[in-house]
Design a protein around this nucleic acid. Structure first.
Length: 267
DNA sequence: CGTCAGGTAGCCA
DNA sequence: TGGCTACCTGAC
């Protein structure tokens, strides 16, 4: 199946570090996410895919987000103009909240290759084998299925094993319902989970709960924000989030991704 | 070896 | 609130 796309760059979107279970083979991206296994490739303005419906693709890659409006909303200065220029076409992936939560718990104090190893290992250890043509991968386990603490530890997640084991008891219905709640309520719920602080909660909000006003502050965002907007002064995460909120408003999440991408020069 | 990497809990002022 | 440190692990 195929689909015409505008203002979309598949490579940037997948490789920018927001999404962890994929493989690039012969120019095609094989994606595994929760129970889905799909293959996608982009040829200019054409998106060719298998293993998913058009509806899923549009929702997953947020192809219906008003890209031009988002960019004009956040492009209030030359810094953001430059960031947008470098990362144009990058979209926020709309992930499954549960897999997203576990993935970002794994992300603490880890670089991208290590996060990918951990998340893939959890799928391999607890998920079911699945295939698309000759490509094989694993589903992501459901809440309740990560109940073996020793097995979790074999995935090299270190001290995060106890967080994952505890998160396993989550009520998935409640988690999904956070999509309908506002940002503050979602943050409160998430930060109540053991091992989930402000950064991880913000990531789950922005990558899976449709909270486009979220603005996760990690070390990279902190560096770039201090450079661009605080004259290289060391400031608190709270100050950074306040500024982002005022400056980028309801699309702060996109500003966050553009700044992160352009700073790290990924892809 | 030490340091660092997309943080958080627990503790203290 | 804000500041501090231990913490699993693997790459350099």
């Amino acid at each position: 199946m195929q689909l015409k796309v505008k203002d979309f760059d598949l490579k940037k979107t997948i490789e920018c570090g927001q999404f962890f279970r994929y493989e690039l083979i012969d120019g095609k991206y094989y994606l595994a996410h929760r129970d889905n296994l799909l293959v996608v490739e982009q040829q200019k303005d054409k998106l060719i895919f298998k293993g998913a419906t058009e509806k899923f693709i549009k929702s997953f890659f947020r192809l219906n987000d008003p890209y031009k409006e988002i960019i004009s909303t956040i492009s209030t200065d030359k810094h953001m103009n430059q960031a947008v220029e470098k990362s144009f076409g990058l979209r926020i992936i709309r992930q499954d909240p549960w897999e997203c939560l576990i993935s970002y718990i794994c992300s603490q104090n880890s670089n991208i290759p290590r996060i990918r190893k951990k998340v893939n290992c959890i799928a391999k250890t607890f998920g079911k084998k699945t295939s698309l043509g000759s490509f094989q991968n694993y589903t992501f386990p459901n809440p309740g299925e990560l109940n073996n603490f020793e097995k979790i530890k074999t995935c090299k997640v270190g001290y995060r094993a106890k967080y994952i084991h505890k998160a396993n008891n989550i009520n998935e219905h409640e988690l999904m319902d956070l999509r309908k709640k506002d940002y503050n309520e979602a943050m409160k719920y998430l930060q109540n989970l053991f091992g989930v602080g402000e950064k991880v909660a913000d990531c789950v909000c922005m990558f899976s709960l449709d909270k486009l006003n979220a603005f996760p502050v990690d070390v990279w965002i902190k560096r770039v924000m201090q450079e661009l907007y605080f004259n290289n002064k060391i400031v608190s995460n709270k100050q950074i989030k306040e500024l982002a909120n005022n400056k980028f408003g309801k699309y702060a999440a996109y500003a966050n991704q553009f700044l992160y991408f352009s700073r790290r020069k990924l892809v």
